[in-house]
């Protein structure tokens, strides 16, 4: 009866002795599956070494730090070079295969020992596969989130067109996340520019339902608290019909048909102010 530790030592020893064979076998099989086409020979060499080192280290140390580190790097690289999840997972599965078959061939004479070695090897191999796949998905999600944030910022410009007038052209659907972001940006702009009139143009908003109307009312309320009056422009005939049929009360909103007439109104409101100050 050989202890697990002894077996582990033997296994790592075996893997280390046959490093080149294992690496080459993996590269060969990966090439057959056309998974390495985007890589140069040098990169392939680096990849196979990195994977081999990671596996051996993990089996040797019994912890997964090396695997996690490798997975993170791999994920970043993989996403950057537009590798698919499929390719990554296939690559890892191949690796598992290659090592598995290698172990089989080495121990095929001693079946009990083979089972024991497999007992050690299988969980580790599975875990590495799991870590790499997870890291890849997480990395992708992170990139998607980042892009979403960037899009959110881009999607709501607040423009100052006169000393005291801000224009917010809204384009696209408005969900609560976006609405919250719009209000925040608008309020900060009001403070920065000391604006007293805000024109929100919703020509580019395809559908206005109760939720969107509610967001608009909140925006107007918040602006009002900072002392800015709001004019809504560009409600389309279809949207006007929807809003009235839904029973949304917009009586306290100042609305104008077009951005142009909204700006005219804003000018008039300001001119009154200017005349009265004198």
């Amino acid at each position: 009866m050989i202890g697990n530790e002894k077996l582990l030592e033997e296994l790592t020893g075996l893997l280390e002795d046959n490093a080149d064979q294992l690496k080459n076998q993996w590269v060969k099989e990966m090439t057959e599956m056309k998974l390495l086409e985007k890589l140069t020979p040098v990169e392939i060499e680096q990849q196979s070494s990195a994977i081999y080192d990671t596996c051996v280290l993990t089996i040797k140390n019994g912890n997964y730090d090396a695997a996690k580190k490798y997975a993170r790097e791999m994920a970043k690289k993989g996403v950057l070079e537009a590798m698919t999840v499929d390719q990554i997972i296939m690559g890892m599965l191949k690796l598992r295969d290659v090592y598995g078959r290698f172990i089989f061939s080495k121990y095929q004479q001693e079946v009990t020992k083979l089972y024991k070695v497999l007992d050690i090897y299988e969980p580790i191999a599975n875990r590495i596969l799991n870590i790499v796949a997870l890291a890849f998905v997480q990395e992708r999600e992170r990139v998607i989130n980042e892009q979403q944030l960037a899009m959110l910022e881009l999607s709501t410009p607040v423009l100052q067109i006169r000393d005291q007038i801000l224009v917010v052209p809204l384009i696209g659907t408005i969900d609560s996340a976006r609405a919250a972001q719009i209000v925040e940006q608008l309020l900060n702009s009001i403070v920065d520019t000391q604006a007293s009139i805000v024109i929100i143009d919703i020509t580019g908003v395809p559908v206005i339902d109760t939720a969107v109307a509610n967001h608009l009312i909140k925006t107007i309320q918040a602006s009002k608290m900072l002392g800015a009056d709001t004019i809504i422009t560009g409600i389309s005939p279809a949207n006007a019909q929807t809003l009235v049929s839904l029973g949304v009360d917009l009586s306290m909103m100042t609305t104008k048909g077009t951005l142009r007439s909204g700006m005219k109104l804003a000018d008039e409101m300001l001119r009154i102010e200017i005349v009265e100050k004198v």
Partner: peptide
């Protein structure tokens, strides 16, 4: 701004005739 946001999120509505300034 943060106060305005909170008040609006609380569902508080100010009266339209209430005067406010920056």
């Amino acid at each position: 701004p943060a106060v305005a946001l909170t008040l609006v999120e609380l569902g508080l509505r100010i009266k339209w005739k209430l005067l406010t300034a920056l």
